[in-house]
């Protein structure tokens, strides 16, 4: 490649970075504006919006609600996804390609359709819209992600590790818990945090599967429909900082995973 194209490319890259960061930076900035009106110009600054958010019991309750959903979803997704991966990863059987495709299906179905289908299904199995329905919906959506991450890690585990465990007296369950599970740990941390983010950030499923109690994205959506306000910016900024920290942590444990193998 010539120097010319190289420069063009680096310009495109940095332009893209700016495109990604500017909107978020604006959003954070507006959260400190001392006026109810979102937009330029900004004449005075304040922390009041954060104080308001911190005292808003509804926001705090919703935050806790979303967190509870995210944690339950993560636990369920990790269990089912890991089980799925230990089944689909090492075993060869007829029709595996189809089973694999069906296992990944929820991850690629357009969000609205997935949400609608799950809403109808929840009705079928008699689950009222609400926390349980959202947890179920999020778990269905997250299991394929967990399974894929765990399968990738599993494929790097030498077969002899499990054989050695069996040789030394473990049955398949004990071998799994004492040898395979510790080996999967970094993948599970990474996938788990990813699940938390997916669940905590999800709007469309939470919107259609939720009852009267909104999750955080649904609450922000509702507030947005009745108009922008710096309070929303403050909430969003808190969410942004939290997700960034979680994401970086996930990324770190996934990297260590790749280095280890």
């Amino acid at each position: 490649m010539t120097r010319h194209t190289r420069i063009v490319m680096s310009v495109v890259y940095w332009a893209f970075v700016i495109y990604l960061f500017v909107p978020l930076a604006l959003m954070v900035t507006m959260g400190f504006k001392d006026s109810k009106f979102i937009g330029f110009p900004i004449r005075a600054w304040t922390f009041d919006w954060y104080a308001t958010v911190m005292q808003d019991t509804q926001v705090l309750a919703v935050f806790g609600y979303s967190m509870a959903i995210a944690v339950s979803t993560t636990v369920l997704s990790l269990i089912i996804g890991t089980w799925m991966a230990t089944f689909l990863g090492p075993n060869m059987f007829r029709g595996k390609a189809i089973v694999f495709a069906l296992a990944c299906l929820p991850a690629v179905i357009p969000g609205i359709i997935s949400a609608i289908a799950l809403r109808i299904f929840a009705r079928l199995i008699d689950i009222e819209p609400g926390m349980l329905a959202i947890i179920l919906g999020h778990t269905v959506h997250n299991v394929p992600f967990v399974a894929l991450v765990v399968m990738a890690r599993l494929s790097t585990q030498p077969k002899s590790h499990i054989e050695a465990a069996r040789d030394l007296g473990a049955d398949s369950i004990v071998a799994f818990f004492r040898v395979t599970l510790p080996y999967l740990k970094p993948a599970l941390i990474g996938a788990g945090i990813f699940c938390m983010l997916l669940s905590f950030d999800d709007f469309v499923r939470a919107f259609f599967l939720g009852g009267y109690q909104p999750t955080l994205p649904v609450l922000i959506f509702a507030k947005l429909r009745s108009g922008m306000s710096p309070e929303i910016n403050a909430i969003s900024t808190i969410v942004l900082i939290m997700t960034a920290i979680l994401g970086l942590w996930a990324e770190r444990s996934m990297r260590r995973l790749n280095k280890g193998s």
Partner: peptide, 15 residues
């Protein structure tokens, strides 16, 4: 796991 036989693996398979 039900045999009194143990094995040294080629790659040692240390945990």
């Amino acid at each position: 796991n039900r045999r009194d036989v143990n094995m040294v693996f080629q790659d040692y398979a240390l945990f």
